[in-house]
Structures are given as C-alpha cells and as structure tokens.
Amino acid sequence: MISTLQFILVPLLACILLLVITSYFGIHVLKREIIFIDIALAQIAALGGVLVIFIDHRLHTHEIMVGDLFLSNILAYIASLLFCLGAAVIFTHLKSPRIKVPIEAFIGIAYALATTAAVIILDKGAGGDVHLHDMLTGSLLWTTWPQVIRLAIILVIIGGFHFIYRHRFIQLTAFYLEKSGAMKHQRKWDFLFYFTFGIMIIEAIRVAGVLTVFAFLILPASISALFAVQWRQRILIGLGSGVLAAFIGLYLSITLDVSVSPLIILLLGVILLVGVTTRKILIRHPV
C-alpha cells in the first residue's frame, strides 16, 4: 500500500499541477466553444515535435550526444510552437465570409491530417505502435521530478499571469462569442490568451499526451458547469473531481496493471455521469 503510494506520488503531483491549470483553461475552452480546435492544436504541436525528433534521428543515428539531445529538445519545442502558431493564423484567416464552408470542417481535417502525418512519420521509426500510444496518452506513470519541477515553473508563470489579469481574460471570453470590439485591445489580449494557452498545451502534452490533456480540459470543466457558475467555484469543483479521478486511476492502474491515462479519462467520464444524474435529482427535488 505505502510503496504503491510512494510510487504514484510523482505522477499524482504532475496530474494535480496539470489539473490546476486545465480546469481553469477548460472553462475558457467550453465558454468559447473551441473544443475541437484545442485537440487539433495539441495534435499539430505533437506533430511538430515528432517531425523534429525524426529528422534529428536521421541525422544523428550514430552519434547521439547529450548536447545534441538538449538541442533537439529545444528544436522540437520551437517547431511545436511554430506549428501551433501557423495553424492558429490559418484558422483565423479561414474564418472569412469568402469561405462558405463551416470552420469546423477545416479544424476536423487539420486534426485528421496532423494525426495521420504523425503516424506516417512514427511508422518509419522502430516501435511505431508504442510511440503512437505515447503520443496519445503520454507516459504519466514515468514522470520524473525534473519534469514536475519544470511543469510547476511554467504553470506558475502562466497561471500567475492569468491570475493578475484574470478580470480581463474572463471578460474577454465573455465577449468572445459576441461581436468583436466590445473590449479595449481585444486583439492583443486574444493573442496573449492563445499564446499562453498554446505554451500550456505543449508543456502538458509532453507529460500526459494529446488525449489526456484534451480530457483534462473538457471533462472537469463540464462537470463543474453542472453545479456552479462562478469561476472560482468551477475551478475548485473541476480540480477536485480531476484529482479524485487521477488518484483512483493511478492507484488502480498499479494494482490492476492497466495503463493509467485511459483509466483516468474513463473515471472522469464516470464522475460526469454521476454529476449529470445528481443534478437531475437535485433539480427535481430541491433541497
């Protein structure tokens, strides 16, 4: 029991850190209804990373050195960021009255494109299936202390920024679905929102994978939407349900010997179902 708890301590910390920020960003995502943009961008970022690592492997198959590894890490990061930004720019431009096709079509195609392109690249390397799994669900169980510390530093910076300017960001999202120009410097703040969101996503998918991050964003925010309206309460409810799912998921994953990320996602789904039922009962029989 105790050794299991010790073993899951680091992954649990990583999950809690991730959930703190995703249960906040998730509310933005849900309110803006940019749900699939988010998984598409995450996948595109992952593709950028995969591409650089592949090229790097091709160049350095025989002489892998620590310095090179560091360099390729940075390159992968920059490529992810560039891919993300490029996609964001294209999506913004395609939302034009000239294009008579719903923007969702382009988002969906971009998601399919990025996933299959990553599959093609991974297929070229050895153990493609394993990498595919990693891309989708990460390797949470094998999170290390340096990763957690790095995650914590970046989250403190992004979270702090959002906390200081929280009124602006909340106002921004409230106005998002209405006509633009309702707020001062809307474009600048919108850019800052997407920029910080993008960095958070890139960091998060390195630890937890595309699918887990997607789930961490939309499921806690959906659960909290059932019971609260205020941001503070919603973040707390989302965080609470997320941490509960992460803890049970990590524990069961060790004892039952199944992979952890899908388990946590399914547990979040169970919590959502329980939440929906509870809400129905509460509405019918108010306390």
Binding site: E33, I35, L136, I218, L219, S222, L266
Partner: peptide
C-alpha cells in the same frame, strides 16, 4: 449547460480511451 460540441468531444475522448484500455 454543457455545449453540444463538448458532449461530442467527450464521447470521442471516452471512446478512444476505452479502446486504448481494451487494446491491452
């Protein structure tokens, strides 16, 4: 209170997660 697109996203996400779990 949950937008339709989120419901679709959740269905997709849970479907894929369950598939990954069963794959093992």
């Amino acid at each position: 209170v949950i937008p339709a697109e989120a419901v679709i996203g959740i269905i997709y996400c849970l479907g894929l997660a369950l598939a990954l779990l069963l794959a093992e």
